[in-house]
């Protein structure tokens, strides 16, 4: 049997909001250590890696490893049925054909169950090695969302240029060009407002706005985002999910023709 309970269903809602624009379906790998998802978008340009540790759940039981293919849009619809303060429990039997979402109101006067059919999926799993990156930026997630949104008005892609002066985001197109520079700011009043730039080597990489604007949907999960970059390799954009895990997005860079 598989059973995972979260007092705050809002966390799971936010996780779904953070992936639903990129993925139509995904396999949820459930084991003793927790729930993991690795899935690429249909164009194979980006990848979502989600990890929810078992010890972050309020109750967790997984008697045997399960691979459950789920429709992200269906799951998202179901989670919209949960009240903001509801507790959520995911439940499946061994060799399941469906998974049940159980929402319970805080004073336990309402219990709602939604059963969702699982889907068979062909999976492409990528082996992503541990990598040390030449530039790691931590910044407020709201600021990153804003930069992606603002620069998207000027072009289809954003160039990230990291130097010892800081990081510069720029975009250009038919209407003109724009750039936004950020310097390290560790004196911010609050930790979540800090900008931390750890640069070993300067770099310049270009990424498609369309995907970046999907990644920033994870902003409500965490006040800070971490961007890890090296020349000519995919960007890693990471948001922590409280004490329970993280969501990492990988995005292939654009290269000059």
């Amino acid at each position: 049997m598989f059973e995972a309970r979260l007092v705050q269903s809002a966390i799971l809602k936010k996780v779904l909001d953070a992936v639903k624009d990129l993925l139509t379906e995904a396999t949820f790998e459930c084991s003793d250590s927790g729930i993991q998802v690795q899935a690429m978008d249909s164009a194979h340009v980006s990848l979502v890696s989600l990890n929810l540790r078992s010890d972050g759940f309020d109750k967790y039981r997984c008697d045997r490893n399960l691979s459950m293919g789920m429709s992200i849009s269906c799951m998202s619809k179901i989670l919209r049925c949960a009240g903001a303060e509801d507790t959520v429990t995911l439940r499946a039997w061994d060799n399941p054909e469906s998974i049940t979402f159980i929402f319970e109101s805080p004073n336990k006067d309402k219990l709602a169950e939604y059963e969702m059919k699982l889907i068979n999926m062909d999976q492409e799993h990528l082996g992503i090695p541990e990598t040390s990156y030449s530039c790691v930026i931590k910044m407020p997630s709201g600021e990153f969302s804003r930069i992606c949104r603002d620069l998207s008005q000027f072009g289809e892609s954003i160039t990230f240029a990291c130097s010892k002066e800081g990081i510069k985001f720029s975009a250009s197109g038919d209407y003109g060009s724009a750039n936004i520079k950020l310097v390290q700011n560790t004196d911010a009043d609050k930790e979540e407002e800090a900008v931390v730039i750890d640069m070993q080597e300067p770099l310049k990489l270009t990424f498609a706005c369309r995907y970046l604007n999907c990644f920033v949907k994870a902003g409500p999960l965490c006040n800070q985002v971490q961007l890890s970059m090296s020349d000519d390799v995919p960007l890693v954009c990471e948001y922590k999910i409280g004490d329970i895990g993280h969501i990492k997005y990988y995005l292939a860079p654009k290269i000059d023709d």
Binding site: M40, H44, V45, S46, L47, E124, H125, L126, G127, I128, P129, S157, T206, A208, V233, P234, Y250, L251, A252, P253, K254, I255, D256, D257
Partner: peptide, 14 residues
């Protein structure tokens, strides 16, 4: 115009 890469060019399928 820069060309969009495929993620599978960077990581092996396992």
């Amino acid at each position: 115009t820069p060309i969009q890469n495929d993620l599978r060019e960077f990581y092996a399928l396992v």
